[in-house]
């Protein structure tokens, strides 16, 4: 037990208490939360700043509108319905095709219009929202993910999570849905997390259910040593996102569309700590480096350059040996 404690300290692993007390409470002002907690607001702010997001088709705000659902989604064959204030990927419905009034979901389930209406009602009633308050349902563009991910994702949409601290991208991972996670990209629900080398955008070690894995459990394809396309663009999106939300410590989720490139899916004021397991590295050493260089970067591209220089695998290995180097 003490052995473990010492190892974690040495690696600079950030625990939940430390995350809350040392990073979230002092850095993230409560008033800035709505911008990330409400995905509709996030989307509006991002569009205003010229950042790419999945196109919003429609918003359903009151129960009465559910009756018009048929008209509203008429002509759409594929779309996503999600709660504006959902958490952990709950309550998201991904429709991939329709025939008549039957809608096929990414999971293979087939729903009728009534069933979709009921789901929208559940969203409005706040079943999936943080704290259970009434919510809105967003209908938006369904991301068709990049062919790279076809071999290593099961049903859902894989995404790239980047943690930024004071506007500098600090750590990243790619999250791959599995059969166990039922298409969702959350590690605690059974998705795979693969760490990413900040310098090159290559995937490193991967973790699944707290165990190290090298292949996707459902497809059998390797998940390490893959090059994430548009890596520099993604880092730039992450660096810019801090300007939007004013949150000093945040996570940003980016999906890769095969036609549209990287799109901001959502942002998170309380990103989880599993990213450390995926990268086999602690966040604290990187935050310390960022703290030591605060105010020295000219603009967002400079921050990206800084992150690529300081947080690539080779630099971290040589700098201290405690920065956490992942074994391939």
């Amino acid at each position: 037990m003490l052995q473990t404690l010492r190892s974690l300290k040495k690696l600079g692993i950030v625990g939940l208490n430390a995350r809350n007390a040392q990073y979230i409470l002092p850095n993230n002002a409560r008033e800035n939360y709505p911008a990330v907690d409400d995905k509709l607001l996030t989307k509006e702010i991002a569009i205003a700043a010229g950042l790419a997001v999945p196109k919003l088709y429609d918003v359903i705000r009151i129960n009465h509108e559910i009756k018009e659902l048929e008209d509203r989604i008429a002509g759409m064959d594929e779309f996503v319905i999600k709660p504006a204030q959902g958490s952990g990927g709950d309550g998201i419905l991904v429709v991939i095709s329709r025939s008549g009034d039957r809608y096929r979901l990414a999971s293979g389930e087939i729903l009728t219009l009534d069933e979709i209406g009921y789901h929208v009602h559940m969203i409005l009633a706040g079943v999936y929202s943080l704290g259970g308050q009434p919510d809105k349902a967003l209908i938006e563009y369904r991301v068709r993910f990049d062919p790279l991910f076809e071999k290593i994702a099961y049903q859902g949409v894989p995404d790239v999570r980047i943690i930024t601290y004071l506007g500098v991208p600090a750590m990243a991972m790619v999250r791959l849905p599995t059969r166990q996670s039922r298409g969702r990209a959350n590690l605690h629900q059974g998705a795979i997390g693969a760490g990413i080398d900040m310098g090159t955008g290559m995937t490193l070690s991967a973790v699944w259910n707290s165990r190290m894995v090298s292949e996707h459990p459902d497809t059998g394809n390797p998940v390490s040593d893959l090059k994430i396309p548009y890596w520099d663009e993604m880092l730039l999106l992450a660096a810019k996102s801090q300007q939007l939300t004013k949150l000093c410590y945040q996570g940003i989720d980016i999906v890769l569309d095969r036609d549209l490139g990287p799109l901001i899916l959502e942002m998170n004021a309380r990103p989880g700590l599993a990213i450390q397991i995926a990268n086999q590295a602690g966040l604290k050493p990187r935050f310390d480096i960022i703290d030591a260089h605060v105010g020295t970067h000219a603009d967002e591209p400079a921050r990206v350059v800084f992150a690529k220089e300081r947080f690539n695998v080779a630099a971290l290995a040589s700098s201290s040996g405690t920065g956490g180097v992942a074994r391939r």
Binding site: M1, Q3, T4, S7, L11, G15, L16, S210, Q276, I277
Partner: peptide
């Protein structure tokens, strides 16, 4: 959390 992060040891 010591258990959760046990892979690091």
């Amino acid at each position: 959390e010591l258990w959760r992060f046990r892979e690091f040891v």
